[in-house]
Amino acid sequence: MPEIKTNDLDAMLEYAVKMKATDIHLTVGSKPMLRLRSLLQPLESSQPMSQEDTREIAVACLDEEKLAVLKQNGVVDSSFSRNGLGRFRINIYKQRGTYAIAIRIQPFVIPKFDSLGLPPVIKNFARLKKGLVLITGVTGSGKSTTLASLIDLINEERQCHVITVEDPIEYLHKHKRSIVNQREIGMDAPSFSVALRSILREDPDVILIGEMRDMETVGIALTAAETGHLVFSTLHTVGAAKTVDRIIDNFPPNQQDQIRSQLATVLEGVVSQQLVPSADRSRLIPVTEVMVATPAVRNLIREGKPHMLNSIIQTGANEGMHSLDANLAELCFKGLIAKEEGLSRAQDKQYFQQLINKRW
């Protein structure tokens, strides 16, 4: 391929989309790097980035307000679109006195839920009328895509008002049977807490909170779910037990019993997910843990025993539940991912090995 100039962001974006990369990393002294099937690979047809290259790209991607934030805080999040290519989430940060840039590639078209390879039980969460549904996982695990597909399903099937609060907006939703209003932090509201304080006065049926970041955000999400709204949000946790712990730990000890009771009442499900390279390294495969809020699950949360949730999940197949390790073992058995990859990702390696031994 022809050489791509280090300050030609559009050419980099076009090539990255063509190669089905998920991310682009630009840093001084290194060639542009693409994340392909979870591995970083250099853009061989380019030269190492200079300080001027990253500064020029940063200035081109940000308006004056965002540039001021970058200069003051040393980091800023934003997003932008390119016709025919897609939408891009960008994080620009300072390192060693220069700018470094991470770009996440989002397609314009929201993937249909059935194309994602996720368990059908997750689709049921989109058909609830109220409650709290959490999609969890580390950065880059596909949480935003899962949520976007669920919101799109609601948009196609129901006549309701959906409000999203995101930082930044990743997927753009068109109005279908529902109306979908999307608020971006920094553009439409100064913070999550400010946006959420007024959200119940905006007559929503469904609320998407990009991330439950602090005590106030969690409290508003619980209250919204308790007052008859369907609330979706994310946490950077792995597994239902750790997710419950994280929510409770946001609050001081004298409030935790009340929050446990509230969470036990409103929680409808927790989905934890990862993206794992396929056995032939040709694509990424979603691996999930699903917990459905059965009466037994609610009791454990109310009694402050989240460490016992894993046992409920492992034996809850009739309710649509499964553990991350069980899903990993199933994908290994089908030959979709390598056993070594499954073992390295397993939460309980001994349990995973027992599942594998039963199959082979």
Rank of each mutant, 00 (worst) to 15 (best):
I105K: 04
I105T: 05
Q106N: 08
Q106G: 02
F108W: 04
F108E: 14
F108M: 10
V109P: 04
I110C: 08
I110D: 05
K112R: 15
D114C: 04
L116S: 04
G117H: 12
G117Q: 11
G117C: 09
P119A: 12
P119C: 03
P119S: 07
P120H: 07
I122A: 03
I122V: 12
K123Y: 06
F125N: 03
F125G: 05
L128D: 07
K129G: 13
K130W: 06
G131Q: 09
L132R: 06
V133N: 01
V133W: 06
I135E: 02
G137A: 06
G137I: 05
V138A: 15
T139N: 09
G140I: 09
G140N: 13
S141A: 15
K143G: 01
S144N: 06
S144A: 09
T146E: 02
L147Q: 07
L147V: 08
A148M: 10
S149R: 06
I151C: 13
I151S: 11
I151R: 11
D152F: 06
I154K: 11
I154G: 14
N155F: 12
N155M: 11
N155S: 07
N155K: 14
N155A: 11
E156H: 08
E156P: 05
R158S: 15
R158L: 14
Q159G: 03
C160Q: 13
H161R: 12
H161E: 09
H161Y: 14
I163S: 07
I163G: 03
T164Q: 01
E166N: 07
D167Y: 00
D167A: 00
P168L: 03
I169V: 15
I169L: 02
I169H: 02
Y171L: 07
Y171C: 06
Y171H: 11
L172R: 12
L172H: 08
H173F: 14
H173L: 06
H175W: 14
H175F: 13
R177A: 07
R177E: 15
R177W: 13
S178K: 11
S178A: 15
S178V: 08
I179Y: 08
V180K: 06
Q182S: 12
E184D: 07
E184Y: 10
P190W: 07
S191V: 00
F192R: 00
F192N: 00
V194H: 01
A195R: 08
L196H: 05
L196Q: 03
S198I: 02
S198Y: 10
I199K: 03
I199H: 06
I199V: 15
R201G: 01
R201P: 01
R201M: 03
E202I: 09
E202K: 12
E202C: 11
D203N: 15
V206D: 01
I207H: 02
I207G: 00
L208S: 02
L208N: 01
E211D: 01
